[in-house]
Computed example of a mutant assay.
Amino acid sequence: MNFVQPIRDPDVIEEIELFLKEKNERDYILFLLGIYTGLRISDILSLKVKDLKDKKYLVINEKKTRRKKNNGRSIELNPILKKALKKYLKDRPNHEYVIKSRVGNNKSITRERAYMILREVANEFDIDSLACHSMRKTLGFHLYQQTKDIVLVQKTLNHEDSSYTLRYIGIEQDTVNSKIATLKYY
């Protein structure tokens, strides 16, 4: 599997949102949940309507970090995400999955389907390194760009080490690349 990257260009993010909103509202909500909560795809796919409908906060025990101490987190929902969720969840029953599959009776889409949705986006926008984790990395990257607070990003992504977070969101490599690009020997 290739190393995936965040979506660095805000204009591309906006274009992807518009593309998905026109194509399929469920896929649009999937993307918004990814870039505005920073949750892993497994956690997004496990969400039910009752977890988000008319809520200011999403309270979640992340699957990957479930065994760690103090795992239960409360994530304030971004106003853009809240507005989209209000419309999307309006008439949906509480027991239903948010990212519901069209196949079966009240099942979430699979991780594979989520990956295929993002690969369609990657093909549409000619992005090489886009996959499910790109949404999470996108939140981390832009949060860092706007705040320059790596500890905040580390806590948001529920990482244990800030040096890992810098590598994870691509900042370390961006810094190396920019320094090499400006290197002069004489």
Score class of each variant (00 low, 15 high):
37 T>V: 12
39 L>V: 01
39 L>F: 09
40 R>L: 11
41 I>N: 03
41 I>A: 08
41 I>D: 02
44 I>L: 12
45 L>Q: 00
47 L>K: 07
48 K>D: 07
50 K>S: 15
50 K>A: 15
50 K>H: 12
51 D>S: 10
52 L>R: 00
53 K>A: 02
54 D>W: 01
54 D>K: 14
56 K>S: 13
57 Y>T: 08
60 I>V: 14
61 N>T: 13
61 N>V: 14
63 K>S: 13
64 K>C: 12
65 T>R: 03
66 R>D: 09
67 R>P: 00
68 K>T: 11
71 N>S: 14
73 R>Q: 14
74 S>T: 10
75 I>E: 06
77 L>Y: 02
77 L>F: 07
79 P>H: 08
81 L>N: 09
82 K>T: 13
82 K>S: 15
82 K>D: 09
85 L>T: 01
88 Y>G: 07
88 Y>K: 02
95 H>C: 05
95 H>I: 05
95 H>K: 13
95 H>Q: 12
96 E>N: 08
99 I>H: 02
99 I>L: 09
101 S>R: 05
101 S>T: 04
101 S>E: 08
103 V>K: 13
104 G>P: 07
104 G>R: 07
104 G>Y: 05
104 G>Q: 10
105 N>E: 14
106 N>H: 04
106 N>Q: 11
108 S>K: 06
108 S>I: 04
108 S>P: 07
108 S>G: 05
108 S>T: 10
109 I>K: 01
111 R>Q: 15
111 R>K: 14
113 R>P: 00
114 A>S: 14
115 Y>I: 04
116 M>G: 03
117 I>F: 11
117 I>T: 03
117 I>W: 09
119 R>D: 07
119 R>W: 10
121 V>D: 11
122 A>N: 03
